[in-house]
Amino acid sequence: MLLRNAKILFNNPVSLELYHMALVCPDIAATIQPGQFLMVRIQDRLDPLLRRPFAVHRLYPNDPPGSFEMLYKVVGRGTQLLSNMLAGDSVNLLGPLGRGFRLPEEKGSVLMVAGGIGIAPLPYLAETIAASGCKGPSVLWFGGKNSADLVCVQHFNDLGFTVQLVTEDGSEGRKGLVTGHLEQWLTQQNELPGVIYSCGPYPMQRSVAEMAARLGISSQLSMEALMGCGVGACLSCSLRCRPPEGTQEPHYANVCQDGPVFDGEEIVWDESSS
C-alpha cells in the first residue's frame, strides 16, 4: 500500500459522462493487479471530503513508463471535479488496494460480462490474461443504456475477444438487458466458459452469479460500495456474504479489503436491492 502523488497525462471525455484519465505513477503501476483499486484524493482540500475508489482500466508499462489509465463516469460532485482536471495537474493515490481477479487456467475459455461503467476494470484483466498465454476463446458481453456507454470495444476485438453488445434502448447491438440475452446464448454453447468475470450494477451482478451457479460455472464479481477509507478501517463498504464457519449472522465483508472481487457463491444477495 503506497501513498503517492501522480501527474495527469490526459483527462479526455469519451462520451457525455465517461472520461479516460491517464496517470503516471511507476511504483503503483509496477504492483497493481487487475481488479485492485486506488483511493483517489481529488484535491488537496476538504471538498469533496473523502477519497473516491477507481479501478485501473488499462496499464501502459512503457508509454510512458509506469503509466495507467482510469475510466470513470461523472455521477456526483467528486467525479465532476475530477472531470475538470487538466493534464499536468496531480492527484493523490492510495493503493494498490483490495483483492483483484484470479487469472483463469491456461486452456479454459473466458467470459466477461460488463454493465455500463462496469467495463472499467476489464480491459486490464483482458490484457493480463492475453499476456499470460491463456489460449482459450474469449467473449465479452457488454450492456449499456445506449450506444454511448459501449466504449473501448475495439480494444477487446484487438485482444481476440468476440464482443456481444446489448443496449436498453436498442441503439446498438441487441435490445434489452445484457443478462437477458446472456443466459440464452450460454445455453446454446457447446462448451461452457471456464470462468465468468463480471462487473456492473448490483442486479446485473446478482443475475450473473445466479446464472453461473445454475450452469456450474465459477464466477468472479467485482463489487461496488460507498467507501470511506479503502483499507478496512472504517467498515463502511459492507457486503453481505456467507459467514465463515462458526461466526455470527449476518456476516458483512468489507468490499475494500475482502474484495472488491468476490466469488459469486460468497455473496448473500439482498432481495430489496435488486
Binding site: 471530503l49 460500495a225 472504517c234 467498515l235 463502511s236
Partner: peptide, 26 residues
C-alpha cells in the same frame, strides 16, 4: 463481549465537510 455484525449497508454518506456513518459497532 460478543462479536457484532453491525448495521446493513449503506452505512456511510458524505455530507458537506462531513461523513455520516452508521456502522453499528461491528
Amino acid at each position: 463481549l460478543e462479536p457484532r455484525s453491525g448495521n446493513p449497508p449503506p452505512r456511510i454518506w458524505e455530507t458537506c465537510g462531513g461523513m455520516l456513518n452508521a456502522i453499528g459497532l461491528q
